[in-house]
Simulated scan of single mutants.
Amino acid sequence: MTTTYTLQDGGKITATCAADFVTKLRESSRFDSQCTDQEYMYHFADRFHDQTGNVIRADSPEHFLEDLKLYKYLNIE
């Protein structure tokens, strides 16, 4: 099953699972596209915390995606 996510900046990502979402988000990144997915989640979580004060879990793609939904970084279509 594929899901389409609309990001805060208006971008869209269609992914089959949380890990696929993280990979596609990383590949589209201006900052960390050359990192591993795990490194990307850590860097993203740090930036997100600095900008919003909210903590994004980066221990798994599933937690990462759940927290992005929780803090309204993305919406599911």
Results as ranks from 00 to 15, higher is better:
Q8Y: 10
T4F: 02
H49K: 13
S28A: 11
H43T: 11
C17R: 12
D37G: 10
C35I: 09
Y40S: 05
Q51R: 14
K69I: 11
F44L: 08
T52L: 04
Y5L: 07
F44H: 04
T2M: 15
H43N: 15
S29P: 03
E77R: 00
A45E: 04
A58N: 15
V22F: 03
D59F: 05
K72Q: 15
H49Q: 14
S29T: 02
A15G: 03
R30H: 14
Y42D: 15
S28R: 04
V55C: 13
E77G: 01
T36C: 03
H49C: 14
C35V: 09
K24A: 11
D50M: 10
Y42K: 15
F64A: 03
D9H: 02
D46L: 13
H63T: 10
Y73V: 12
F44E: 06
L7R: 07
D9P: 04
L74F: 04
D67M: 03
M41P: 01
S28H: 04
L25W: 12
E66I: 09
K69N: 07
C17K: 13
T3M: 11
A45D: 05
L68W: 00
H43V: 13
M1K: 10
D46S: 11
I76T: 04
L7H: 08
I56T: 10
R26Q: 09
Y42W: 09
T6I: 12
R47I: 13
T16V: 10
D32A: 15
I56M: 11
A58H: 15
R26W: 06
A45R: 00
R47K: 13
T36N: 05
E62L: 00
T36F: 04
D46C: 12
K12W: 07
E62S: 09
D20E: 10
T36P: 01
D9T: 08
S33Q: 12
N54S: 12
Q38P: 04
Y71M: 04
L65W: 03
Q38N: 09
P61D: 10
L65C: 02
N75Y: 05
Q8N: 14
D37E: 11
D9F: 03
L65K: 00
I56L: 08
Q51H: 12
T23S: 15
H63M: 13
L65M: 05
T2A: 14
F48D: 06
T52E: 00
T4P: 04
K12A: 14
L68T: 00
R26H: 05
T4M: 03
K12F: 11
